[in-house]
Design a protein around this nucleic acid. Structure first.
Length: 483
RNA sequence: GGCGCUAUCGUCUAGGGGACUAGGACGGGGCCCUCUCAAGGCCUAAACACGGGUUCGAAUCCCGUUAGCGCUACCA
């Protein structure tokens, strides 16, 4: 066996099975693999584990691609499909047989099931009793020649298996607890543990980073590596993600697919940042980070051993933070499709008023936690007609004639002078003084007239971004409505 | 049942023998700012699962208990 130099570039892979959508747990596993690769100048590979034909679909494969692409977790080299490597898997099984590390087993699934139940009823741990390993060579040959169906099993040695896990340090399994596990089915297709090892060797994967639900597969896989004479990769087992109730994250917990969050108006940078913090810490108080910062700060030392609970509240907060700090160049293309989908404007309008549009986004993003929040808030600046919120009317237009009087005085004051925020503000504050009321008595009814809502950005910022025509038009409409 | 993994505020975490009166963040409560809502600033409640060791000294090291989770297929 050759000893590789320490300078070998790390090769990592994310290996989902295409049996659903890209789950946030999977996304986080992918992220850590990706961060490791980027941080250490390595390579990030993608392998689709589609050997379970019954459950794998093209649709979910596409969903996985889309999810990873949306997140920006780009992979190097061609996507590997495990199902395409059947011949190599079989060759490796044969090699294991030839090397004496594995043997043929003629026990049927039904027989095994029966024995398993028996052991169960006696409250004993079931372990294959190796009866087929004791068959004579002649008998095996005869039964194979007769075409009797059989599987291939690894002959697990009694020695303990241990490895130095990147996140858990030393993990050890007593040899006596490792079963003679099946590596090739009677139909000639490989079992997971064989396919994984065979592919990881072929892909020259040096770091196997995956969920800790694979810890108990690891000793079996190590046995295969050794029997195949391959160098062991470094293993890293990441903790799971749980829902708010502490159970494994599932559909019951609401959105669990990355695509769900995309549609909920999250941005990938925030999603990634949030996911990274679920199971990893850069140390100290660091929280809001860009991709570049995460790559820079990534270290296996910060990897957590404990399962983390997915907290949607913090995700939202994180998204709000990212919405506020990313550049307008980055924000705009994320919001525009949503604005268009909501029917507020078309592409041309947005392009024609590019600068104005960007100022609007800049104004709205500070009080938004999702893209959808921005779209909702943007309505008054685009729509021809606005709806008046009942509570807003009840509260600030309580007395219609009084409200009408204030609004028309407001309109006159605004229309009289130049349209800049300083002039507008002084006009309205003067009006308040003249009428002997607090400024809020002017601002709030005006806010309702302009937006139909009680909540909006600052009144002068709003007047400026709406522009004279639209603002005055809104006032006319409101005054007419109150008549 | 067996094997394995894990255990700091409700949640995410800092912490790697003395710097701990255990720090930060989300969420909660309060105050400030203020034309509303956010954002921001300040303050506040809130945790080392339990029991033994080791040590002059333990959130930190070891052992046990308990609890949670995972695996225990001719699934991946």
């Amino acid at each position: 066996m050759t000893v590789s130099s320490a300078a070998t570039t790390p090769r990592l892979r994310f290996a989902p099975s295409p049996t659903g959508y890209l789950h946030v747990g999977g996304a986080r596993t992918a992220l850590f693999n990706w961060l490791y690769a980027k941080h250490f100048g390595g390579v990030f590979l993608l392998r689709i584990e589609d050997t379970d034909k019954a459950r794998s679909t093209d649709e979910s494969e596409r969903a996985i691609f889309n999810g990873l692409e949306w997140l920006g977790l780009n992979w190097d080299e061609e996507v590997v499909h495990q199902g395409a490597n059947l011949e190599r898997h079989q060759r490796d099984a044969q090699a294991l047989l030839d090397a004496g590390a594995a043997y043929r087993c003629f026990c049927t699934a039904a027989e095994l099931d029966e024995r398993r139940k028996e052991a169960d009823s006696r409250k004993e741990a079931f372990k294959y009793d190796r009866r087929c390993d004791r068959l004579s060579a002649d008998e095996v040959e005869r039964r194979v020649a007769a075409g009797e169906p059989h599987v291939i099993r690894m002959r697990a040695p009694d020695t303990d298996v241990e490895w130095n896990d990147l996140v858990h340090d030393r993990i050890a399994f007593p040899g006596k607890d490792i079963d003679d596990f099946v590596i090739l089915r009677s139909d000639g297709t490989p079992i997971y543990n064989l396919a994984v090892v065979s592919d990881d060797i072929a892909m020259r994967v040096t770091v196997v980073m995956r969920g800790d639900d694979h810890i108990s597969n690891t000793p079996k896989q190590i046995l295969i590596y050794r029997a195949l004479g391959a160098e062991l990769p470094t293993f890293a087992h990441l903790p799971m993600i749980h829902g708010l109730d502490g159970k494994k994250l599932s559909k019951r917990h609401g959105a669990t697919a990355v695509g769900d969050y995309q549609h909920l108006g999250l941005i990938p940078g925030a999603m990634l940042n949030f996911l990274a913090l679920l199971g990893w810490s850069p140390g100290g108080d660091r929280e809001v980070m860009t991709m570049e910062e995460m790559i820079e700060l990534f270290s296996v030392d910060g990897l957590q051993r404990k399962a983390a609970i997915f907290d949607p509240k913090k995700l939202e907060w994180m998204n709000g933070q990212h919405l506020s700090v990313i550049s307008l160049e980055e924000l705009e293309p994320r919001v525009t499709p949503a604005i268009i989908a909501a029917g507020l404007a078309d592409v041309k309008t947005l392009e024609d008023r590019r600068e104005w549009y960007r100022s609007l986004l800049d104004l709205l993003r500070v009080r938004a936690r999702t893209i959808d929040d921005i779209v909702r808030q943007a309505i008054p600046y685009f729509a021809d007609q606005i709806e008046y919120d009942a509570d807003a009317v009840a509260k600030y237009w309580k007395d219609p004639s009084e409200a009408r009087s204030i609004l028309s005085a407001t309109k006159d004051a605004l229309a009289a002078g130049p349209w800049d925020s300083i002039s507008l503000e002084s006009a309205l504050r003067t009006l308040a003084d003249t009428r002997g009321v607090a400024a809020g008595k002017i601002f709030q009814p005006l806010r309702v007239a302009l937006t139909g809502l009680t909540v909006s950005p600052g009144i002068f910022e709003m007047l400026m971004i709406m522009g004279r025509d639209l603002a005055l038009h809104r006032l006319d409409t409101a005054i007419a409505k109150l008549a």
